[in-house]
Amino acid sequence: MYLRILLRTFFVFVFCLHNPLGAWAQDTLSMVAKTGELRLGHRDNSRPFSYRDPATGQVMGYSVDICTKIYDEVKKELKRPDLRLTYVLVDGKNRLSDLKNRTVDLECGTTTNTAERQKEIAFSHHIFIATTAFVVRKDSGIKTLDDLQGKRIAVERKTTNDSLLVANERTFHRKFVYVLVDSAQQSLAALTRGEADAAFADDASLWVPMTQLGKSMGEYHFLEKRLSMEPYSIGLRRDDPRFKDLVDRVTRRTIQSGEMSALYKKWFNSDQGVLPMSAFMREALKRPSDVGVEQIAF
């Protein structure tokens, strides 16, 4: 009898050695069923993806709408129509750790799905493909990157974007004049004030300040050529296949049904028009993928 107990204790000890805390942790759906709430991590002011409206206090955005669809699916899966949806503010520094330590169950913002980050968390299918883009005046005569030779380009200092311009100069033997600023909004402001011939930043980051130009927004447009791409995805915890399957089911259905295209038009629309959908985004809507990438420069 004593030997049997000793052996059982030994096997439990060995199991613990080979299966760290994650093996004992509850999967997300079991934990949500127990607590009666799904915790959604959102950003404070990442318009139009994830933000809290200052007038109403409501959490909203493109990414939030997709996470809300996941919440609806969780309610069906658990047969819990009373399941609460709790919004938790996260930021760029803590968004991954908040997922890992179970402060939130979904991270709904503008997080790029990279191979490096997949070592820490899991991701949904790509929900948006951000690209670095040039905005110019329509009447400037600038149609290609070659037309930007010797032109003034407003770009945020000490970012991957100014590094991309340097790499492009070196590869294609071009020469740009740099107008260094501190944000995408400032790069657009330099363009509208005539201090630059082009603004260069993430297309989605430029979109919001462009919509604030009112009717004069129609005087500007994006060049077709993009210099890099970064796929945004919804973040969730690793090693949780049951929850991952549910999230993938929702995002795949949202993509294939055309709902994600409709959400794109909803959130990237203004009285002056719709943010042009890049070729990379169109491809993402044809072939759902959750592959983590490194930054790709062109």
Rank of each mutant, 00 (worst) to 15 (best):
V136R: 05
E195L: 15
L180K: 15
A25M: 13
G57Q: 00
A25V: 06
R47T: 13
N94M: 02
D98G: 13
F280K: 15
Q186H: 09
P288T: 05
R238E: 07
D91W: 03
I296W: 12
K143F: 00
T171H: 14
T132N: 14
E77S: 15
R249D: 07
L188V: 04
V104K: 12
L285S: 11
V136T: 08
R226T: 13
R253V: 04
P231N: 04
R117C: 06
G109Y: 09
G258K: 10
V247M: 00
V247T: 03
R137N: 06
R252G: 01
T56E: 01
I127L: 01
L6Q: 05
I129R: 10
T254I: 09
D139V: 08
L191A: 02
R52D: 07
A198M: 02
K266M: 09
G109K: 07
D53E: 07
T103L: 10
F298Q: 11
L85S: 04
K93N: 10
L165T: 02
Q295E: 15
V250F: 02
V181I: 11
T171L: 11
T251I: 08
T35L: 11
A199T: 08
H18V: 15
R102D: 09
T112H: 09
Q26I: 09
D197I: 03
V12W: 11
T211P: 03
R237Q: 13
V274T: 14
L236G: 07
G22P: 15
S97R: 14
M281H: 09
K138W: 02
I5Q: 06
L188R: 13
H18E: 14
L29T: 03
I296Q: 15
M217Q: 14
V181C: 11
T111N: 15
V90D: 05
I127N: 08
Y232S: 02
V181P: 13
K100Q: 09
P81Y: 09
G258I: 00
I127F: 03
G57I: 02
F222M: 03
V135H: 03
A115F: 05
L38C: 01
F243I: 07
V247D: 00
R8P: 05
V12N: 01
V293I: 02
T114S: 14
N269R: 14
Q118V: 05
R43G: 14
R242C: 08
I66R: 11
A167L: 14
Q58R: 10
I5G: 00
T68P: 06
Q149I: 00
S205C: 11
V293C: 00
V136H: 03
A262D: 11
T112V: 14
T144Y: 02
D44Y: 15
E169Q: 11
A33L: 08
D203F: 12
D203K: 15
Y71E: 04
L89E: 00
D245M: 06
G92I: 04
K143G: 10
Q118A: 00
R4I: 08
E77L: 12
N45T: 05
R157Q: 04
C108F: 07
T192R: 07
P241M: 04
M281Y: 05
D197R: 06
S228H: 08
S63E: 06
Q58W: 01
E283V: 10
E294C: 09
I142F: 00
F49C: 08
G150E: 07
E169S: 10
P231W: 02
V179T: 06
R47N: 08
H173V: 06
D245H: 10
